[in-house]
Amino acid sequence: MRVQQNILNLPVGSWTDDSSLSLCLLDSLAITKKLDLEDVMNRFVMWLFENYYTPNCRAYDIGTTCWKAIANYKKNGDWENCGLTDERNNGNGSLMRISPIFFYLLKTYGPDVMKNPESYKVIHQTSALTHAHPRSLLGCDIYLAVMFEIWNGTEKDKILPEALKKVHSYAETDKKIEDEFYHYDRLFMPDFAKLPEEEISSSGYVVHTLEAALWAFLGTDSYRDCLLKAVNLGDDADTVGAVAGGLAGLYYSGEEEKGIPEEWLTKIQCRDFIDGIIEKAERVWLGN
């Protein structure tokens, strides 16, 4: 199996904007012990302008929408209105960092979270810090719904249909979300996971990224194979890998043979920094 070329020429085990912004959100949840979106934005500023939450003291591969939204907040201090709302601003920059909100939703609303309208408000506010168009909000809804189907032990071939059913049920009460559903029509195809590679795009468009990540996850049976399948699509490989990895990491958690390869973990840059954030978050959001 081929391995995607390191086009940024980063040291092995480096991480880019996807992981950095996810760490910002996770660290905020761990430190504030709540969802404080102003604090999250302050950490985004620390990343973009102070090179914090980076492996090599440099913020890599910054998307235009993220950059503009964070710059808006730095200038105006208004987290509720800093995200971009235009249809052209439907990149994958909120989808790629949304997974830590899973832990907040789980502890706040329980495993049936995707049946609770309040949970969608949380997801939308978190996405809208940078990406506020309904299409991006819906992409995050679908992704979190898939995570909760995994958490609840849904059989793998039923995970996506069950997630889509719950999100669509909510969308019937929110026209701006319902009107965007047709952009994700391919996810409703019974044989979506069996589509040939040439029909899967891995561009930075939120719909393409979500499709590619789900396709890689549903079409493999280990974390290693999922990640290799995802990143070898090329194009926006780091983000597709991050989004797919969030699903595979949750699904194969605790499975030594199918989980994250130890040889990959040992190569992660600044691992102590990452582990420290994870340990704080675990105590707050997965403790009793």
Rank of each mutant, 00 (worst) to 15 (best):
K121W: 06
A132E: 03
L95S: 14
L137V: 12
P117G: 06
F102R: 12
L106P: 03
S99V: 02
A132L: 04
Y104C: 03
A128Q: 14
L95Y: 11
R97Q: 05
K115G: 02
S119V: 01
A128Y: 08
V146H: 09
I142K: 10
S127D: 12
M114F: 01
C140E: 13
S127I: 07
Y120H: 09
F103Y: 14
I142V: 04
L138V: 13
V113M: 05
L144P: 00
K115S: 06
A145T: 01
Y104H: 13
L106T: 02
N90G: 10
P111L: 10
L144E: 10
L129Q: 11
T108M: 11
G93H: 05
I123G: 01
F102G: 06
H131E: 07
K107R: 09
V146T: 05
P100S: 10
I101P: 09
L137G: 11
A145Q: 05
R97D: 08
H124E: 15
N116I: 07
C140G: 08
T126P: 00
P134N: 03
H133E: 03
A128V: 11
P100M: 13
L129S: 12
H131A: 07
L138G: 05
L106S: 07
D112V: 01
I142S: 12
H131T: 11
A145R: 09
H131L: 07
D141Y: 02
V113P: 00
Y120N: 04
N116Q: 10
F102S: 06
A128S: 15
R97C: 04
I142E: 14
G93W: 12
S94G: 05
K107L: 12
L106D: 06
H124I: 05
L129R: 09
G110A: 12
I98A: 07
R135P: 02
I142F: 14
L95A: 14
L137P: 07
L95H: 11
S119H: 03
S119W: 01
T108I: 10
M96Y: 12
P134T: 04
Q125R: 12
Y120T: 10
S136W: 10
T108V: 10
P111K: 13
F102P: 01
D112C: 04
D112G: 08
Y109N: 04
L129M: 15
L144S: 08
L144H: 09
L105C: 07
G139K: 01
Q125I: 01
Q125M: 04
N90W: 08
S127H: 04
G91R: 15
L129C: 11
V122C: 05
L144F: 06
S99T: 12
P134K: 00
G93D: 08
S136A: 15
H133Q: 04
A145S: 14
M114Y: 00
Y104E: 12
H131Q: 08
N90M: 04
Q125G: 01
E118T: 07
Y143W: 15
N116C: 02
S94M: 06
S99F: 14
K121F: 05
V113A: 15
E118I: 01
P134V: 09
L144Y: 10
L144C: 03
S94R: 13
